[in-house]
Amino acid sequence: MTVTAKKKKPAPYANPYAAGALLGVVLFAAFFLTGSGLGASGALQRYIAAIQDFISPNSVNQNAYLLKYAGGDREPLDNWLVYMSIGIVAGGFVSAWIHGRLSFTTGKGPRISVRTRWLMAFLGGIIMGYGARFARGCTSGQGLSGGTVLSVGSWAFLLAVFAGAYAVAYFFRRLWI
């Protein structure tokens, strides 16, 4: 995921509308074939639940939220979202490979060190992971999928993500520009 481009001659990215339209077709295929949209953070939630269940089953058994995923005879990884997440990583990897964009680089603004960027990625990840579970879904699960099928909550969520990001973007501009 920090795997990005900058070597030799990486192919340019696709036109955003074209990429979006193709993504829309995939999203439609998901609804058409399985009745559910796409999801990514749900899978990570299940990995976390599985690890916690492995290390400390008692803490899972006392946690009503985690019991939905693990604990008892529930198998947290026996879920379609987990397989979808494997597909997502594989798909991103294969595309980057085909287009010659596969290399280890750290995307960042010119004014910060790589180390700061890593720290910030970690910190931002914590906040996003927390926010995603708070909102019951990440940008793909809540935003894209729910937005497509016109869920009111998903549209409110999408607006909130952009509002939250624009509200603080100025204060973190040093990270990126």
Binding site: M1, T2, S41, L44, Y47, I48, W118, L119, A121, F122, L123, G124, G125, I126, I127, M128, G129, Y130, G131, A132, R133
Partner: peptide, 9 residues
């Protein structure tokens, strides 16, 4: 690092 952060979150 980001995925690690996500997991912690």
């Amino acid at each position: 690092f980001f995925v690690g952060g996500l997991s912690v979150g």
